[in-house]
Design a protein around this nucleic acid. Structure first.
Lengths: 147, 147
DNA sequence: GTTTGTGCAAATGCTTTGCAATTTG
DNA sequence: CAAATTGCAAAGCATTTGCACAAAC
């Protein structure tokens, strides 16, 4: 995970989507995609914007916003909505889909995986005859007494 | 569930919180609480506001907003953040904490419970030494081909 | 009576949108 | 060169806040 090869695959996947939807392959789109995958953990639009500015890749927030829907659709980006009233995002963790533990109102975020989540997902798909495209699992925690 | 007796317990619980926090027992606070518990399923602030207007209980949205934090804190109200960029809410389902299946971008919301969620919660508390105060489980689904 | 709460209207801040200039295919 | 995209600035909209009046204690 996180290798140069993986990044090439991700870009290829994104290109396929652009072709399929007959959208243009702009440098901004690839720059946003790259920045997302170079970011560890979760971030918001402003974080992404500032990071890109710092790297001297001038881009407008409008363009980031304009492309977020596309990235979500392609499953290359995952949206979080806990704590703050604005959205936070995260790259897709291929293979493992972590669940999140939100500590102290979002001050800190931990990730974990548990196979039972996958079992439940499969069971829902059978029981209700749905296709589960994605899931979000948040446990809201506070550190125990002795900190 | 949903009996007159339950509602009395809920009000009592709320009153205890108000006393403990030295806050005033205003009719607006009890009206909001009652409306929340008379509402089936999830709703947003505007829904609640309009429902109360229709019942000739004139209240301002500001007052609803002013009291939401308090209700969340007391665990009498539960907040949801999926799909739309605004918050949706739901009364507390005492005992059973349902997980949610969000259909077609929030067009429809189903609930289910699974004991394994509780097991995972207990395990996290042991493993990380956290106290899990709450959790949110969302599975995003689309109906299978044949509808 | 003092302090807290309500509710209007204005402010806030994330996100969206209109539109001219630019770029892609 | 036609159509899509960028990016600025303005608009939108859920939520928050300031403040005068009312209500709780």
């Amino acid at each position: 995970m996180g290798t140069k090869q993986d990044m090439e695959n991700i870009k290829k996947q994104f290109t396929e989507l652009l072709v399929k939807k007959q959208l243009r392959k702009t440098p901004e789109r690839y720059a946003i995609l790259t920045e997302i995958y170079e970011t560890k953990g979760e971030f918001d639009v402003d974080d992404l914007y500032l990071q890109m500015c710092n790297k001297k890749y001038a881009i407008s927030k409008a363009t980031i916003y304009n492309n977020i829907e596309l990235l979500l659709e392609s499953k290359l980006l995952k949206e979080h909505r806990f704590g703050p009233r604005y959205s936070r995002f995260e790259k897709n963790h291929f293979g493992e889909r972590p669940s999140h533990i939100i500590l102290n109102e979002g001050e800190e975020v931990l990730e974990f995986t548990d196979d039972r989540i996958h079992d439940i997902k499969t069971e829902i798909e059978k029981r209700f005859n749905f296709k589960i495209a994605d899931y979000s699992i948040y446990f809201f925690a506070e550190r125990s007494a002795e900190g």
